[in-house]
Write a protein that binds this DNA or RNA. Sequence first.
DNA 1: CGTCCTATTGAAATTCTTCAACACTCGTGG
DNA 2: CCACGAGTGTTGAAGAATTTCAATAGGACG
Lengths: 216, 216
Amino acid sequence: LTPPQLLELSKHTNKHAYAASAPITSDGEHIERYANILKGVVKLAKLTSDGRQQIVGLQFAPDFLGRPFNKKSEFDVQAATEVLVCSFPQETLNRLIKENPELEHRLHEQAQNELNDARNWMMTLGRKTAAERVASFIQFIANHVDPEKSPAQKIITFSLPLSRSDMADFLGLTIETVSRQMTKLRQAGIIDLSDAREVTVLDSARLRAATEQPND
Amino acid sequence: LTPPQLLELSKHTNKHAYAASAPITSDGEHIERYANILKGVVKLAKLTSDGRQQIVGLQFAPDFLGRPFNKKSEFDVQAATEVLVCSFPQETLNRLIKENPELEHRLHEQAQNELNDARNWMMTLGRKTAAERVASFIQFIANHVDPEKSPAQKIITFSLPLSRSDMADFLGLTIETVSRQMTKLRQAGIIDLSDAREVTVLDSARLRAATEQPND
DNA sequence: CGTCCTATTGAAATTCTTCAACACTCGTGG
DNA sequence: CCACGAGTGTTGAAGAATTTCAATAGGACG
């Protein structure tokens, strides 16, 4: 982005904070602002009419939030952790895109990355066992919190951005099954849990093997 | 697209036919051509190391095939039915995009539509029962083969583009479970099956109810 | 007519869910 | 300072759904 464009954007920009599990937008709601995530994790969720929930995407800083050129949100957007976003009106972005096609290219690339993530996750939901799903989730979070992942064997610790309930909704399982599989990973010496949220990966090779796939 | 651009494109264009279940590209393969589907249905599939398969997307005419600006295919691309595509080199498209940003916009929109489809399907895979998944699949195919879908109660007949085995891989089930659920839908009078592939929707309201969601 | 391939059906086995009880943490107020 | 309650997570046992294993059916083709 060119400096005058950044200036233009910043003039219309608002920062906004959301508490964990606060709604950001809901399914079908009209959207007139886009946003970038500055901090925290955002979940995208769909509901069936009888209340079952599936989390269909997680977004991390500095992801873009919103569907360009789509008027409606197609799912609920909620803060998973505490979230800080910086939002701006649709027209501002649309105007910037007109001036600078490169910007649309970058949004297009993010859309493709999200599509890849979604398809990888379809494999997890459709074909993996509960144990493999939970291992895949920990692997997925580890990849996202530790952007500079070392090649092997480094012991890393991080905090899960999702509650057991959200993990269940992401993994297509129940909270009880998630909890049991976490316990098994701990008993197997693959991870350590100082509390329910704080994960230390003790054996990243076996964790990866437990996902049964080079998931991403 | 402007006439000179269409002419330019057609000069580099090759038509190619694939038999049902013939591979088009495979995971990790280098891609040097893009294509448009002229006829038929294409499936995008991922494999685990131990051979489990998940179909992560279906594409219909006139969808675009290939990941713009990505060098590698991230999954296997296979013909589901007999398929006719029209392919052209990457550079040709990249050149056209440079001249005409509107083209990238359209590809971006397709990517967003595919992302919506993928996320809708994540809900199906993560949270629906076998019966709901099979009903959702029939609904999904009905929507795609009958582009001008009438609002209600019209009885429509179509041919499933997927074998039971492919349906199972799309739905995250086994072929036996798919077969049993098809039988139940038939016995309930919701659909009729003249043979395993030929579906007549007898009661579209109850079919929709059986999907337990406004899936798309 | 036999063979291959796909699909269906049945019964047993397994995985995951449901239901239920209990543990832990964190605030609040007595 | 401790008790209480709400929220979150864990664990066990019974139940349900789906898979697995196995047998059979039907069509297409040589």
